[in-house]
Design a protein around this nucleic acid. Structure first.
Lengths: 299, 299
DNA sequence: AGTTATGATAGGCTAGGAGTTATAATGATG
DNA sequence: CATCATTATAACTCCTAGCCTATCATAACT
């Protein structure tokens, strides 16, 4: 009876695509369909639900509050299903049970994934699965061997090891930094790149300005994104100043693609913790957990 | 890129229906399609994934390990999406923000839902949403105002109040109980109704037998189910002896539809705890939380 | 073993989903 | 204000996904 309200997955997939690509047109090209097709599909979805998902009074379409809600739900919902399928596929071929690690989406994208590539190269016989979550503290479960949580803990449902504290500071592209210093542009005139999260633990620009005792900014000179991927891209393109989370921008800073600018680093309230099952008979769990902890040290 | 592996929702919905109805034929009738259609759809899904989902060597089709995995994922995944949509629909009509409570599936079905019916009757102006989870400890999140958890805590992400401890004892229908006592049937000859959960915190028959120092049973005389709904139905029909969780079977016991039989109650390791957000500006959260705690007392 | 209940297979048909092109409308930008 | 970029609307086409009937195969039950 529950599926009466469930929209066809096509629509939800399109919806996600539009969000990811940041616009109908781009979504259309990446999905290999025409632009009107996407518009139609989104309309159908909105009709199906009965609520507008996008704000049409602004041109690169932006999510409404309702849209953001749905986005969160579908994103993690699909992730659940897909990662289960992945796991099953592995389970079919090799008899080696893969190790599944759950992590918050930003951490997974910018810290975990790049490193996992190395891990897989080093230990090709130990398959690893990543389950991204919208929440900061994924639970251990039959399907999750390692959970990486952002918070204060302590957690008692498994063996926990601290990975690192989180630190935040403004960063931007080297080009923008040079331009700013050369022309002596004051902080207040620089475009700020915002990421709209619902998680209260993620420090926002507003909070940062407050913590560093700077005046609050208006909506002038600001770019808004709903995910870190786009925001980071905008920063790399030199379109503004982003609040750089250490776990997310560290690699990019090291490569010189982003540089700290305008202001000090601020410690986040919480830190990242790796929690693994107590009784993991699975060798790969121990191996991967140790490996990640090691990587976190030298970071 | 992630949707490459996502099967059409039709298939997943059918899959869920087959599980819920406990068979292809029954699923067909409840979904208003022909039986071959269902068979087809399931085959397509299995092809899509590349893994058999059902064990065909047994006649009322049973889930394989892989199937169980997928079931869990889709169930909670869809639940996420649907409850988000529900919430949005409410949000459209009335400006009163609904209160969303997340709870483990068994608790939600058998304890929460029946009581919520009364709550809604009493306070029609306070809409309530239920989000069922496969795990025992749902998190608070922007979308979840109240989380009901089964575990040992303590949890610090919100204000927590104990609801009640869990207790387990064998129960069956009055008819079966009478027949057993009349004919002096020994415990070892009674059919046991099993529920297959992956959550280690749910005590199984094996554990119960061990705790009460009875001999372990073979697979003879046993019925297996994957969810409590079916299992409870089987118990009500007098088809065997079920391990009755207080939170689940209490109402049915009070109505005389189930009676305790063969053996003592055993305390579960953990208890149910209600966790609500610290700063709930939402009146309905406070109201509902207090109401539930009150109900839990007199139960 | 015979009977019943349940699921699998084959083949054919049709409705409507999903996409296309062409064009208009509207916000962003300078 | 002019131009560009992006999204909305309309009308039409196509094809395939999904369903059905009919029949067969096999497990469960007694």
């Amino acid at each position: 009876m529950m599926w009466r309200r469930l929209p066809p997955s096509r629509m939800l997939v399109m919806f996600e695509a539009v969000i990811q690509c940041g616009g109908v047109t781009r979504a259309a090209t990446t999905m290999n369909v025409s632009q009107p097709s996407v518009t139609q599909t989104i309309r159908q979805l909105e009709e199906h639900i009965g609520v507008p998902l996008f704000d049409r009074t602004v041109r690169p379409l932006r999510l409404t509050e309702a849209g953001r809600l749905l986005h969160e739900a579908t994103y993690s919902g699909f992730n659940n299903i897909i990662s289960a399928i992945d796991e099953m596929s592995w389970l079919k071929g090799s008899s080696v049970r893969p190790c599944t690690v759950a992590a918050p989406v930003g951490f997974a994208t910018y810290w975990l994934m790049p490193r996992l590539a190395h891990f897989s190269a080093q230990y090709p016989d130990y398959p690893v699965n990543v389950l991204t979550t919208q929440e900061g503290a994924p639970l251990l479960s039959p399907r999750v061997d390692i959970a990486i949580r952002f918070g204060s803990g302590p957690w008692t449902d498994g063996q926990s090891d601290n990975l690192f504290d989180e630190r935040i500071r403004p960063v931007c592209s080297p080009a923008l930094a040079r331009k700013s210093t050369d022309n002596n542009i004051p902080f207040d005139n620089v475009t700020l790149i915002h990421v709209e999260f619902n998680d209260s633990r993620w420090t926002s620009w507003d909070e940062y300005l407050q913590m560093t005792q700077r005046p609050k900014r208006g909506i002038r000179n600001s770019l808004h994104f709903t995910n870190y991927v786009q925001a980071a891209q905008a920063a790399l393109d030199g379109r503004g100043l982003m609040l750089g989370w250490r776990s997310i921008t560290y690699d990019m800073e090291r490569e010189g693609r982003l540089v700290p600018m305008y202001g000090d680093a601020v410690a986040a309230k919480d830190s990242f913790v790796l929690v693994r099952k107590f009784d993991s008979r699975n060798k790969s769990v121990e191996l991967l957990a140790g490996w990640l902890i090691e990587k976190a040290k030298c970071y």
